[in-house]
C-alpha cells in the first residue's frame, strides 16, 4: 500500500534529442570543472565538487534501494558512517602498526580500505536488512531510522575511536602512482569511481535482477506467484545499496581525513533521501543531479545570507509541490496520473 509510485527506468515515447546528449555534456563539464576553477582562481570549487561527487555516489546507491526496489530507507546514513569508520579505523591502525581487534592488519591503501568499507557496510546492511525487510511501508522507514540511530549512539559512545570527536587521519590513503594529496587528483579519482558506479548501476537497472526488483515494487504478489523469492531479491538490493553508500562514506573519510558520528546523524539520511527525490528516484542520473543541486543550492544561499534556511526550506517545499518525479524527468513526457 505504501509503495512509492515513482517509476523505475521509464520507457518514454520520444524523449527530446538533448536528453540523450545531456549525460555526456554533464560528464564533459565535470571533467573540465577543476581546470576552469583553477583558471578562475576558485580552487575551492574543486573540493566542493569532490564533495558533491562523493555524495552523488551515496545518493545513487540509495537509489538502488529506493528508486528501483521501492524501499524507502531513512537510515542510509548508517552505512555511510560505517564505511567511513571502516576506513578511519583501518587507517589509524595502518599508521600505528597495531592490528585492529588484535588480528586485522591496518592499511593505508585506498583500494584496500574502500573494499573494506564496502564489506563492512555490506555486512551491516545485510543484518539490518534481514530484520527490517520483515516490515514494509512507513514501518520500514521507521525501523531503518531506528537502526541508524542505534549505530549513531554506539559510535558517539565509542571512546576507543574518539566518540563524538571522531577519528582524524594524518594523511590521505595512498593510491600507488598518484599524488592523492593533490585535490585535483583526488577529484578525478572520485569522479572515476562515480563513473564506474553509475556504469554498474545502469547495468543493474536493465539486468534481470533490476527487472525483478521493478516487478516486485509494482506487485509483490504477482512476482511471488511466478516463483520469485521476493524477500531475497529485496534483501540483495538493500545490501548492494548499503555497500555503495559505504563506499561513498569511505571515500568521504579519505577525502576529509576525518570521520565522526555526525556522518550517521538522521539528518544525513534525510539529506540523502532529498537528493534522490529532488533528482528523480528510479532514474540513473537523477540522484547525481539531486546531489549537485542540493549541495550547490545550500552553498549558494549560504554565501548570500546568514538566514539561508528561511529560503532553502520553502524552496524544497516548492520543489516537492511542483517537480513530480524530480529534476531528471524534466523534459520527459509525464507518464501516468
Amino acid at each position: 500500500m505504501d509503495e512509492p509510485r515513482t517509476p523505475a527506468v521509464t520507457k518514454d515515447a520520444k524523449p527530446p534529442r538533448w536528453r540523450a546528449w545531456a549525460p555526456y555534456a554533464g560528464l564533459l563539464a565535470l571533467v573540465a570543472l577543476p581546470f576552469a576553477a583553477q583558471a578562475l582562481g576558485q580552487a575551492a570549487l574543486t573540493t566542493l565538487a569532490t564533495r558533491m561527487v562523493i555524495l552523488a555516489i551515496a545518493a545513487s546507491a540509495l537509489n538502488i534501494a529506493l528508486g528501483l526496489g521501492g524501499l524507502v530507507s531513512f537510515g542510509h546514513a548508517a552505512f555511510y558512517g560505517v564505511g567511513a569508520y571502516a576506513v578511519g579505523i583501518l587507517t589509524t591502525h595502518g599508521a600505528s602498526g597495531a592490528p585492529f581487534l588484535g588480528f586485522i592488519p591496518g592499511s593505508e591503501l585506498l583500494g584496500v580500505n574502500l573494499l573494506a568499507a564496502m564489506l563492512a557496510s555490506g555486512l551491516v546492511a545485510g543484518a539490518i536488512g534481514a530484520l527490517a525487510l520483515r516490515t514494509s511501508g512507513v514501518q520500514f522507514i521507521m525501523i531503518t531510522l531506528a537502526f541508524a540511530q542505534m549505530l549513531f549512539f554506539f559510535f558517539v559512545a565509542l571512546k576507543a575511536y574518539g566518540g563524538d570527536d571522531g577519528v582524524s587521519m594524518r594523511r590521505r590513503n595512498a593510491l600507488p602512482g598518484l599524488n592523492m594529496r593533490d585535490d585535483m587528483t583526488f577529484y578525478f579519482v572520485s569522479l572515476a569511481i562515480l563513473a564506474v558506479w553509475l556504469g554498474i548501476s545502469a547495468r543493474l537497472f536493465h539486468s534481470r535482477f533490476g527487472l525483478l526488483l521493478g516487478g516486485i515494487r509494482q506487485s509483490e504478489r504477482r512476482m511471488q506467484a511466478i516463483g520469485v523469492s521476493t524477500v531475497r531479491t529485496r534483501w540483495l538490493a538493500f545490501v548492494l545499496s548499503g555497500m555503495g553508500t559505504g563506499l561513498a562514506g569511505g571515500l568521504m573519510a579519505v577525502f576529509g581525513r576525518f570521520v565522526s558520528p555526525d556522518m550517521m546523524h538522521w539528518t544525513q539520511s534525510g539529506e540523502l533521501l532529498i537528493m534522490v527525490v529532488l533528482g528523480g528516484a528510479g532514474t540513473i542520473f537523477g540522484p547525481v543531479l539531486g546531489a549537485f543541486a542540493l549541495i550547490g543550492l545550500e552553498t549558494l544561499l549560504a554565501g548570500w545570507t546568514e538566514h539561508w534556511q528561511v529560503i532553502l526550506g520553502p524552496a524544497l517545499v516548492l520543489m516537492a509541490l511542483t517537480f513530480r518525479g524530480g529534476l531528471a524527468r524534466l523534459g520527459r513526457r509525464r507518464e501516468g496520473p
Binding site: T6, V138, V276, V277, V310, A320, L321, R324
Partner: peptide, 16 residues
C-alpha cells in the same frame, strides 16, 4: 503523493 514528496516538503518546513 507518495511519502517521499511528503518527507521532502515537511523537511523543508523544519528548516524554515
Amino acid at each position: 503523493r507518495d511519502h517521499l514528496d511528503q518527507v521532502l516538503a515537511t523537511f523543508g518546513l523544519i528548516l524554515f
